[in-house]
Simulated assay, not measured.
Amino acid sequence: MASPIKLHQLRAFVEVTRQGSIRAAARLLSLSQPALTKAIKELEEGLGARLFIRHRQGVQLTECGEAFFRHASLILEELRAAQEDIQQRLGNIGGRVSIGVGASVARTIMPEVITRFHRAYPHVKVRVLEGQLVSMIPELRQGELDFTINTYYHASFDNELLYEKLMEKEYRVVGRCGHPCAGARTLQELMQCDWTLPTPRGSYYKQLVDLFVSLGVMPTVSVTCETFMSSTSLLAKSDFLSILPRDVIEDPILGQQLMAFDLDLPLPRATFYLIQRKETALTPMSAHLANLFRQHCRASA
């Protein structure tokens, strides 16, 4: 029969997994290596399973360890969120909020929303992760992200998450001002150009690939830029083309460097959602930040 699991054992296991070594985890937790090793050993004995394979470079999870880590890290995150929830309801405003945003949201909406939130709650620490939804799924599953504002494409994880529609954005083909093909009116005329796009991993860019296939065209993506900064920098200083939100191009600074092509066939609009894990309530601070995003999106609609 398995022995009861103690909280310090869970913390020891999760931190050793994240750090990749007992030495690094011991330093982070301000514990001695023997104490940490003992906690892991007691946990393995209690579970009746080996969780780590130890080697010179550190530790590696076994199959049982990988399965247990998913549960253990989620338990600790849920406990942290529960403690912060109670403290915030008692008026002790602190803790942290961790969110994800798509690149265009990071450039347009996020700065104003985060500034408003910080002015109201200066003692709450905020972490912002930028990227496509699929890259954030592991952290959403483990409770390390409270929510994300992003586009999504139907996938196997749909049943794990809640999707609340916030807004739509118009996307355009974009190049530098004075681009040699500035007069083009169809996608077909631009297929010989060099293109840069992010990897179409379950997002609006996957939707674009479907559009290209239906039209019988496919741009040659010679360079893959996964960040907004790298993409716009490349566009401004070369003849590469990309597809970006219209409101990003209307930015006063970028508008001096980049132009949107006036094509006869408009690109599909991107739908952005507030996405969070099912059956997990947001803490008061996370819920307040989510409401600020809702208000901003409604005001911009």
Rank of each mutant, 00 (worst) to 15 (best):
G143C: 07
D146A: 05
F52M: 03
N92H: 13
F117M: 11
S156H: 10
L36M: 11
R54V: 14
P138R: 02
R116Q: 06
L129G: 03
G100H: 11
V59D: 02
F52P: 05
E130W: 00
L166P: 12
P34C: 01
G100I: 02
R50D: 05
G58E: 02
E144T: 11
R56Q: 14
F147E: 11
E42Y: 09
M110Q: 15
N159M: 03
L51P: 02
E160G: 05
S104W: 06
V128L: 04
S30C: 04
H123Q: 12
V101H: 14
A35P: 01
D146Q: 04
T108E: 15
K41R: 10
G131V: 03
F68L: 11
F68C: 05
I75D: 06
I40E: 04
R56W: 08
Q83W: 01
R127H: 00
I53R: 08
M136R: 01
F68N: 04
S156F: 05
I114L: 12
H154S: 06
F147A: 09
R96A: 13
L79S: 09
L129A: 12
I40F: 04
A81Y: 07
R127D: 06
T115G: 07
S32E: 00
G46Y: 02
G100Y: 02
P122Q: 10
A106R: 02
A35L: 05
H118R: 13
L161D: 09
P34E: 02
Q132L: 06
G143I: 05
R141D: 15
F147I: 00
L31T: 00
D158T: 13
I114V: 14
A72K: 01
R96W: 07
N150C: 13
V101E: 15
F52H: 03
E84A: 14
L51M: 03
V105C: 06
R107A: 15
F147D: 11
D158C: 04
G58C: 04
T108P: 12
E112Y: 01
H123A: 06
E130C: 12
V59Y: 09
L47M: 07
N92D: 13
L166T: 07
Y152R: 10
A103D: 10
V101G: 15
C64N: 11
E78S: 10
I53F: 02
Y152D: 03
I53T: 12
V97I: 05
L43N: 01
D158L: 08
H71Y: 10
L36A: 11
R107E: 15
R96C: 09
V59G: 07
E66G: 08
T108Y: 12
